[in-house]
Design a protein around this nucleic acid. Sequence first.
DNA 1: CTGGGGAGGGGGCCC
DNA 2: AGGGCCCCCTCCCCA
Length: 574
Amino acid sequence: MELPNHAKQLLLQLNQQRAKGFLCDVIIVVENALFRAHKNILAASSIYFKSLVLHDNLINLDTEMVNPSVFRQVLDFIYTGKLLSSSDQSSEQNFTALLTAASYLQLHDLAALCRKKLKRSGGKSLPGKPSTPGPLSRSRLNNQRLSTSTPAGSKNHYPPTPSDADQLQPDEGLRDKLSDDEMFVGSSGRNGNGGNGSSNGNLSSGGSAGEPDLGLDLSKKSPPSAGTATDALSPHSNSQESPQSASVSTTNSASLDDSSTTLPGVDTGSETMELNSSSKASEETQNQPDGPPPQKKSRQGARKNEWPKREVSGLKSEDHERPLVNGVIVGPKDGRSSDQSFQCKDEEEGGENGQDHTDESGQSDGESAGGGGGTGGGHHSANYVYRQEGFEPAFGDNLYVCIPCGKGFPSSEQLNAHVETHNEDELYIKEEGGTFVKEEDEEEAEDLSAPVGPSNFGSEARPFKCTVCSKSYKDPATLRQHEKSHWLTRPFPCNICGKMFTQRGTMTRHMRSHLGLKPFACEECGMRFTRQYRLTEHMRVHSGEKPYECQLCGGKFTQQRNLISHLRMHTSPS
DNA sequence: CTGGGGAGGGGGCCC
DNA sequence: AGGGCCCCCTCCCCA
């Protein structure tokens, strides 16, 4: 007995899950676009992927071999077995680029399809038989981010394979959607212009039309100096428009059960080439032993100049021994900052209690930040859930659901507005009995650290007082911002690891750390930093300035934090 | 081996 | 939204 459509339905489900980022456990970085996927699927489609995903949760692909647009098609193909080419993609160049990418990624079936297509269209410029990436290219391909820079100008040309570069033109058709401003921030090509200008208000807005439909764009600003392709990754945190779902633009929030539809995002009228079930190239390869293990990341080697030391917090390859839950490495690492479990946006997934992270928070050092949890139990009565904004396009209408009343809203703003109509008390973390357990702890911590009482910082008028902790603020916006720290559910999730934040800015900053985006460069030594403040601190290393002095021993320090830790030495009992 | 200092990095939070 | 600062963790180096 055999279920006729089993495989197809399964794939459909997987693809829908990919669209939502559900259970995705690997991120593929192509230039500055991120794609999430499932390791199993990738490993099943290519031995090359198989070797990559074995040890890494973050994979950088060679931008000379594949560009985001092409990779999107590739990923679609992997998940659907169909080659979807819309009108602007069916050009010969596109197939050539696809063929190059397929060869590079050892997607033999896809390569065969492309070759067939090119042959049919009389293409004369077939790139040679796919030369599987040998050890040489492999090492170059994998984790390219480890190199401190990409060849200048590389951002501007796609494919050229080493051997057929002359035949492969940069595919304008592919690039048309990828405006430099939107997609490339601070690549090496921008050196010298100080780059900051591009205030690409990237938090994009883009919406539909030119939206590159590539994963996350985390553009921040052009780095002041030499950048790398990886630098270019930039936060685009406006996840609202973020096209994470791009590759499979689900047309509605069809639940996972809804398997009856054809894949959303399949452009009607687009040409579809389907993979023959008989093709077996990949099958053969799958049975081969694993390829060489992906290159190990250098670990703290030359610390000074190893710039993306921690490309992906929580997704570091060293972490692969720790349990992986929904794409996020969990479990104790340093006992403090273990990532929270990926919080699935799906309503289907257990009502979002996504409170898994409470456990994590509980383990963490009890930092005062509201921690989204720590109240124990991991379940709370009031729960306002914001859909992960980055995936908004994938869900259609009413993506943001207010759990208590079940109403859906099309935007976080509307949900926010709605949430405020509820009794305020519901917004706060309560125990069953309604006491603010965590907050009490927080209060203490804050009181201890605060030189003055929480309600009177300084002498200026602070008329806006928090009803929970009685801190007061000058303006209502700040108060509202603060009050979010008391909310049960943090409204800003990281699209990559699912960690939740109370402030959007913190989340976007966090996202940059995933991507190793370091826009601030030291002119003296070239060292790069994620934040201006860090650069400022760092510059004291060069200037020799040590503004922080210990009143007890006269010791001087370049950084305040080191003075503080020094002071602890004086005050500690031992 | 250990303790202290220097420094990179992350998150929280206020402005 | 972004800047700036605080706090914490961690790693490396060195005495």
